[in-house]
Design a protein around this nucleic acid. Structure first.
Lengths: 224, 224
DNA sequence: CGGGAGTTCCCCCAAATGGAGGATGTAGCC
DNA sequence: GGCTACATCCTCCATTTGGGGGAACTCCCG
């Protein structure tokens, strides 16, 4: 591989753990990072729980965390790691064009954010920046996140999110009544609040808006 | 990297083009494949059109094609490549859990199918198998695809698909009337046929089923 | 302790939707 | 020429939904 913008000459090794459930990417990425003179891959994991265990065992400098894990949320795993070994630096890696991921990453106390569409060099730089104690967020990502935070105050409550997710699954009011053990009046009340907050005029539109804004992951062929 | 299950000893080089818009994966994968003694990466592309151009220029043995490209469909690109340079072998790589991808890959005349969750060795084996003239589809994937093809005959007409896509965008009947220049009666008629064919009892449920089965791509943060 | 947010439940009513049926014209197929 | 599929439009009716109120109760925070 070619050198990056900042090829460190010191022998200070950055110990990296890769959390990624796509074997193809995990392995090739591991090889690519290992080819860097200052990076050492000391462990890998494919699930949040495995990630925390590996981090406890290996005490890496940086965790490279995929956002879209099959079994759970990368940000949740990041929170867990920060809770158990707070000095661990976490760089989130995502393939989705979802502005809420970066706000979530900031909220979870992550130290870097890289899109999978970015060149590899950018990822390596982010790892080095995070390891050095810096924050590796692209200015473009931050501005997008800020714009969304201003424009969409979408402050849905927990219950409303539950209802929204059920709606996205195609549930009728009666279905939600059965699922949540509530009165139809209550479900309808939640629905109306959701419509109001999202600016929708139907459940269908609400789900479409929520899907567009990344509030929910619509079932089926998606890769978060 | 380590050798695979079938480390060829002949010097016959397999020329590979990688089509992948995730720079991180494209680059690290390129490095990992190049480390194989029998594989040579002769080109990369990030869009379908670029892919076809690169294939024309470099005439590779195998094209490693990501299904989920931002700008267009990997299967469409595969079709284009097969049309222009039919002897090219195409291996589809996908991260989504969508059974329709594999049927589409078979339909497009692809020669291999690998999930990103698979180990790297499996991908490399698929490339070698495809280059040797074989078909590299996992038995598990084929059975799943067959099961779906039997269970979901979902024969929506063109017009019904148009209506379905509008529904997924959150359009009301009135919106669709304006969008399609039809009578509300006609739109409602199409909607009812869609509900019947999908086994849904509401527009919301129909969209959820369609999204689950990969009939439509629901807007927003998805990575097909 | 007071106030706000959240959850739960209730009322009313107009509009949209789901579900049933039929009618017309057009296009392609055997 | 018939037949079938498709698209278009229609009627009728029961149910659901959207939109507007309000009223408890809990919990948390200042």
């Amino acid at each position: 591989m070619e050198t990056t913008t900042e090829p460190p000459e010191s022998i200070a090794q950055i110990r990296v753990v890769i959390v990624e459930d796509h074997g193809v990417l995990a392995e090739s990425l591991g090889a690519a990072l290992a080819a860097q003179p200052d990076l050492t891959v000391v462990g890998t994991a494919t699930t949040p729980s495995e990630a925390i265990r590996v981090v406890c065992d290996t005490r890496p400098d940086v965790v490279l965390m995929d956002y879209g894990l099959e079994q759970g949320d990368g940000l949740l795993a990041a929170r867990g790691i920060k809770g158990v070994v707070p000095e661990t630096r976490v760089v989130i890696m995502t393939g989705v064009r979802d502005e809420t991921v970066i706000t979530g990453a900031l909220d979870a106390g992550c130290d870097g954010f890289v899109r999978k569409t970015a060149p590899l060099r950018q990822l390596i730089d982010a790892i080095r920046t995070a390891a050095a104690g810096g924050q590796a967020f692209a200015a473009e990502d931050l501005t997008v996140a800020l714009r969304r935070m201003r424009s969409a105050p979408s402050t849905l409550t927990k219950r409303e999110f539950e209802v929204l997710r059920l709606m996205a699954a195609g549930a009728s009011t009666a279905d939600m009544v059965r699922a949540l053990y509530l009165s139809p009046h209550t479900v309808r009340s939640h629905v109306r609040h959701i419509l109001e907050k999202l600016g929708a005029h139907s459940k269908l539109e609400a789900v479409a808006i929520a899907a567009r804004d990344g509030l929910i992951n619509v079932g089926g062929p998606e890769e978060p």
